[in-house]
Amino acid sequence: MASHFHVPETIEDALRLRRELHGAASFLAGGTEVNNRKAKEAPEHLVWLGRLGLGGITHRDEGVSIGAMTTLQEILESEIIHPAIHQATSNHANRNIRNVATIGGHLGVCRSCADLIPVLLTLGARLRVATDSGEIERDLESWVLGERDGIVLSVEVPDPPGDLRIAIENHSRTANDLSLIAAAVSLRNDAGRVRNAIVAVGGVSRTVIRLRPVEAALDGRPLPARHEVEALVAAHVDPITDIRGSAAFKRHLAATLVERALRSAWNQEGCR
């Protein structure tokens, strides 16, 4: 359990605290991860981001900006958020957790089974991040796969083009469980051909990943038959066996869920 609690009033102070305390400090957003008493490593210092004015969802010129301290329940209740994000958010844990967990914390912890990351990838979300060398903008995929330094200030979700089709699928053991596999896809149907497909899957790797070879294989042709798509996906995921399922099961599930999401997106009348 932590023994110090810091309440910085500015981003600069927050970054400075973290810098000065080296590895002994953790940023604290909602607390559903950091305050978990069963967490393996408890930080000595908590640097709470609750006084930095990072909440709120606003519509900007070409998209929606979600402040990092926005809770998942606030996202679910917002009327200007894309319905696919709503759907992914509703899959996340339960009401008690969604009332506290924040989108910033969700991205900071960046679990493999994070429910919102696949759908945000399909929407081309970008992050505003405060770092020691100033504020930068990063695309979500680089954040997920790369170094996660700094404080996420907001998630910028561009308004999708009118013909973008999005679908998500997930599987969890019980409604309250972490997603075992979470998949999201987006694509355009260009005169009967798949274009600009994004296929993102959680639960098959250390983080959520995009299946770029699958995206490429689908490009420029009608969506192939079910078994072909499933085989394609299965060939490009490499999950591990753990107590929640064997690798074979997870591979099968990823193939099934991605195929379902692709089929569902493909068959949509239009979008949004």
Partner: peptide, 10 residues
């Protein structure tokens, strides 16, 4: 909220 997941400072 689950009060076990919050600390007083929050």
């Amino acid at each position: 909220v689950n009060t076990c997941l919050l600390v007083m400072g929050q």
